[in-house]
Amino acid sequence: MQVIKEYCAARGYELVIIYSDEGSAKNIKGRPEFIKMYNHFLADPEIEYVIVYKLDRAFRKLLDSLYFWDKIKENNKYFISILDNINTIDPHSKATYIFSALHAERERENTLLRTSGGMEVKAAQGFFMVV
């Protein structure tokens, strides 16, 4: 969050509010703070940008990110991902945005595979009870 604060300060952006979901969810429906942010962002004409540290912190599914892209474009609003160097005010940012969103979804899927694989190994070693 400090990176976002510094980014805004360096560019003269007024930071209105920081939303942060606790835990993890596979999609937007399981992220109440994201939903609040999204509704606030679209409803408030004074807010121009959503700024995130990294795109994969905002989206875990490609379809969610594409839906968000369409909504921000329809409402003349913008999205910035600091680490991915994405700013949708740039008309050429769409390819980078989509590629980063696809990579985020793939990374999430890989994490799930590694986690479930590790659980299976531990279960085989007797560390988990199977009922």
Rank of each mutant, 00 (worst) to 15 (best):
E33D: 06
E33P: 03
I35M: 13
I35R: 14
I35Y: 13
K36A: 01
K36R: 11
M37T: 01
Y38A: 05
N39S: 07
N39A: 02
H40Q: 06
H40S: 04
A43N: 14
D44P: 05
D44Y: 09
D44S: 13
P45Q: 11
P45N: 13
E46D: 15
E46L: 11
I47S: 00
I47C: 01
E48I: 01
Y49C: 10
V50M: 09
I51S: 05
I51R: 05
V52M: 03
Y53S: 11
Y53L: 13
Y53H: 13
Y53T: 08
K54N: 05
L55P: 00
D56P: 00
R57Q: 10
R57F: 09
A58Q: 09
F59A: 05
F59Q: 07
K61M: 11
K61I: 05
L62I: 12
L63W: 14
L63T: 11
D64A: 09
D64I: 05
D64S: 13
S65V: 03
L66H: 01
Y67Q: 12
Y67C: 06
F68M: 04
F68A: 02
W69H: 09
D70M: 01
K71N: 13
K71Q: 15
K71L: 15
E74W: 14
E74V: 08
K77V: 03
K77C: 03
F79Y: 15
F79L: 13
I80A: 02
I80Y: 07
I82R: 02
D84N: 11
N85M: 09
I86L: 06
I86H: 05
I86Y: 08
N87V: 04
I89R: 15
H92K: 12
S93P: 11
A95R: 10
A95N: 14
A95P: 07
T96R: 11
Y97R: 04
I98C: 04
I98T: 10
I98A: 03
S100R: 12
S100Y: 13
S100I: 01
L102T: 10
H103P: 00
A104T: 02
E105K: 04
E105F: 06
R106Q: 06
E107G: 01
E107D: 12
R108C: 00
E109L: 04
E109C: 00
N110F: 09
N110S: 06
T111H: 02
L112S: 06
L113G: 00
L113R: 09
L113D: 12
L113P: 02
R114Q: 09
T115H: 03
T115C: 00
S116M: 08
S116D: 10
G117F: 06
G118R: 00
G118C: 01
G118Y: 04
G118V: 01
M119S: 08
M119I: 15
M119Y: 14
M119F: 15
E120Y: 07
E120R: 08
V121L: 09
K122D: 13
A123I: 04
A123G: 11
A123R: 12
Q125E: 13
Q125P: 00
